[in-house]
């Protein structure tokens, strides 16, 4: 039974990270129908910025919790700036191009960013400083739920709640939903689609960065290519939930995390990554609209 709970919790932990990244994919896809391949790289950049900030503050002797908060904040800001810049440079000029062009541009951007970090920082595994404080009330279940895992689950749930409220109630959130529904109509009603698309990239990148910092402090390492696998898995989560749907991305993240965790625990841990890819392929083949998505209508 303990084993089951442990696998369940580790699944939820992974799942919440996947969900955080998947939100960025799903929001971008909802508005401009582009698989933003560079999104996983933004997540990786978040972890590297946090690493630099944490080392900097660590040498200056700040308290641990303070470092964590500042690191998350700075990483979020910088990743958002990266997301914004990537969109402006690589995707905006291709707004009216055929559908393959922005996709290839996104792959190029992803390759570029990975190699940028590998050259600017290191191409090896980089040790990430331990930033998570011990929570006293976790003592009795510490053997199945690490404090970092607890922090990941709580933070991502809070962030997701905030995002849902933002999308539902604020002016900007409404404008984003309107643009996703029908861009031409939204433009006619006085919404500037370029601003909305930029905002989508900024918010998505910020969420991915939070995920990046949390996972790096959970596993204790980061590397220039962690964004690739994490990005594909998060994309799987987004597709699983129904791409374009925000609650779908959250649900998809958790479902994928649990599938992987139980698959690795009960079947074989060597093929952990294969489960995610297999789920992705099966979903796309049999239910491309996902768990919560609407089937697209193809107009000729």
């Amino acid at each position: 039974m303990d084993g089951f709970i442990e696998l369940f919790l580790s699944g939820i932990t992974r799942g919440s990270i996947y969900a955080l990244i998947a939100l960025g994919y799903t929001m971008v896809y909802g508005i401009i129908e582009l698989i933003n391949f560079a999104h996983g790289e933004i997540y990786m950049i978040g972890s590297f910025v946090a690493l630099v900030v944490a080392s900097l503050l660590g040498l200056a002797g700040f308290p641990m919790l303070g470092i964590l908060c500042v690191a998350i904040l700075v990483a979020t800001l910088w990743s958002a700036a990266y997301g914004f810049t990537v969109e402006k440079m690589a995707y905006r000029p291709l707004r009216d191009a055929s559908r393959l062009s922005p996709l290839i541009s996104a792959i190029g951007m992803s390759v570029f960013l990975q190699n940028y970090i590998s050259l600017a920082q290191t191409s090896d595994f980089q040790v990430f400083p331990y930033l998570i404080p011990e929570f006293e009330f976790l003592e009795p279940i510490a053997h199945i739920l690490a404090p970092s895992a607890f922090l990941i689950i709580v933070t991502s749930l809070l962030v997701m709640l905030a995002l849902s409220l933002f999308i539902k109630f604020t002016r900007l959130g409404k404008a984003m939903r309107a643009t996703a529904q029908n861009r031409t109509m939204a433009t006619l009603l006085g919404i500037n689609p370029d601003t909305i698309i930029s905002m989508t990239f900024i918010i998505g990148s910020a969420l991915a960065a939070i995920g990046g910092v949390l996972i790096a402090s959970h596993t204790g390492v980061t590397k220039f290519n962690i964004g690739f696998i994490a990005g594909i898995k998060a994309f799987t989560a987004a597709v699983l939930g129904g791409i374009g749907s925000i609650p779908g991305a959250m649900l998809g993240g958790f479902v994928l995390g649990l599938c992987e965790s139980f698959g690795a625990g009960y079947i074989s841990s060597d093929y952990e990554d294969v489960f995610a890819f297999a789920i992705l392929i099966l979903i796309l083949l049999f239910r491309p609209s996902g768990l919560m998505g609407r089937a697209p209508v193809q107009k000729v």
């Binding site: 440079m89 690589a90 000029p93 291709l94 191009a97 062009s101 922005p102 290839i104 541009s105 792959i107 190029g108 951007m109 992803s110 390759v111 570029f112 960013l113 990975q114 190699n115 940028y116 050259l119």
Partner: peptide, 16 residues
């Protein structure tokens, strides 16, 4: 050393 970096950038620039 910079080949993959430049090839990535080349893909973006070619598309644009």
């Amino acid at each position: 050393e910079y080949r993959m970096l430049l090839f990535g950038a080349a893909m973006v620039l070619m598309m644009i």
